[in-house]
Amino acid sequence: MSKFHLGLIINPLAGLGGPAGLKGSDGIAEQALALGVQPKAAQRTRIALEQLLAVRERLEFLTLPGVMGAELLAEMGFAHRTLGELGAGPSSAADTRRAVELLQDAGVALILFAGGDGTARDVCAAVREGQPVLGIPAGVKIQSGVYAISPRAAGELTRRLVEGGLVRLASGEVRDLDEAALREGRVAARWYGELCVPEEGGYLQQVKQGGMESEELVLSDLAAWLEDSWEADVRYIFGPGSTLHGLAQNLGLETTLLGVDVIENGRVIARDVHEAQLFELVREHPARLLVTAIGGQGHILGRGNQQISPRVLRAVGLDQLRVVATKRKLGTLQGRPLLVDTGEVQLDDAFPDAVRVWAGYREELLYPLSR
């Protein structure tokens, strides 16, 4: 039986800026590593590839040397061929673009790439029209509609393709934020092009919808409810986003729009924390976690808030998680479930099938959750 040929590109630096609270990974790898952040792109790619182990004998991967693919494929026992060479230093955008060119020349059926929006831009810059690609989410900023909703979903969708299932092809937008502006609290996004991506069921994430999704009156009501129910000496973690930033403003608190902040006894005790700082604040202290959903996409964890890591979630407790989202924001999902992608499959599976959403004054909704 002839082999099914897949391409694989791993951006080993993707996602480093998330746990460090740096709003992205472009040009700050050394800074993130100095804070003790460990690379996770290979781990997230492993989750995707685990879904392909059942069809391993039917596959041959084409990939780049070392940490850009060959190392992980060898560890997992996948047949693979290595193309090209890497320099002595860290991988670069040029390496990704060159990898796309080599994989296309080799005639792979699908290129899997692990990274974030910066990686998608590099793929878009080199890909030829009609070449199918699929992103394994491993970055900080994942606005683009070319990524699966989770690493596991990327693997499941690829397996369906390998097994001969009918998989539609569609155009997915590549979008990216200006990270320098993001670190200054300004959101500046632009469109970079479109990629040909496999699309089936609920495997592919939607493009993030920008703009203010929350109504002022609802946020005022939510603030009044929260103010009535503050628990003394409990630390409230406010995740990033305009909904929670607006909620804090209604409470008279100065939080960061795109960072993670901690509030105790009605005042901000830590602003724009990175993962290690957050863990120290909650590991032996009662805490509550407030997050919001990305409008039009549905992720509540794993997109732009990687400071809220698996160990932070375990320290706080999944039962102490609350989603804050107006009905208007939930309406942008058009019936799709909320999503979690913590980076650990076992932890994702521990979440309930539906979560409680604060949508107004003393108004809680039960909304479906998927992984």
Rank of each mutant, 00 (worst) to 15 (best):
274 H>Q: 13
239 G>L: 01
274 H>I: 10
240 P>N: 06
262 V>L: 04
320 Q>E: 15
259 G>R: 04
280 E>Y: 08
300 I>P: 02
303 R>P: 04
293 A>F: 12
287 A>H: 10
311 R>F: 12
299 H>E: 10
275 E>A: 15
265 N>M: 06
324 V>T: 04
285 H>P: 02
290 L>W: 15
282 V>R: 00
304 G>D: 11
334 Q>W: 11
243 T>K: 00
240 P>F: 13
273 V>T: 10
300 I>S: 00
244 L>H: 06
253 L>S: 03
233 D>T: 09
250 N>P: 03
314 R>F: 09
317 G>V: 10
273 V>G: 00
251 L>R: 04
261 D>A: 07
312 V>N: 00
261 D>T: 07
246 G>F: 08
268 V>M: 09
288 R>S: 12
266 G>Q: 00
276 A>C: 05
234 V>I: 10
330 L>G: 00
297 Q>M: 14
310 P>D: 03
268 V>W: 07
260 V>T: 13
319 D>F: 10
248 A>W: 10
301 L>P: 04
309 S>Q: 10
278 L>H: 03
286 P>I: 06
274 H>A: 10
286 P>T: 07
313 L>W: 05
285 H>C: 13
240 P>A: 07
241 G>P: 01
272 D>E: 13
252 G>R: 07
306 Q>D: 15
256 T>Y: 12
267 R>A: 15
318 L>A: 07
241 G>K: 02
305 N>S: 10
267 R>E: 15
239 G>A: 05
282 V>K: 01
236 Y>F: 11
257 L>Y: 07
296 G>Y: 12
270 A>Q: 04
295 G>T: 12
309 S>E: 10
322 R>H: 13
261 D>P: 01
318 L>Q: 03
335 G>T: 03
254 E>N: 14
319 D>E: 15
264 E>F: 07
318 L>N: 04
310 P>S: 05
263 I>N: 02
239 G>I: 05
242 S>H: 07
285 H>I: 11
288 R>P: 04
239 G>C: 04
287 A>N: 09
267 R>K: 15
242 S>A: 14
250 N>H: 15
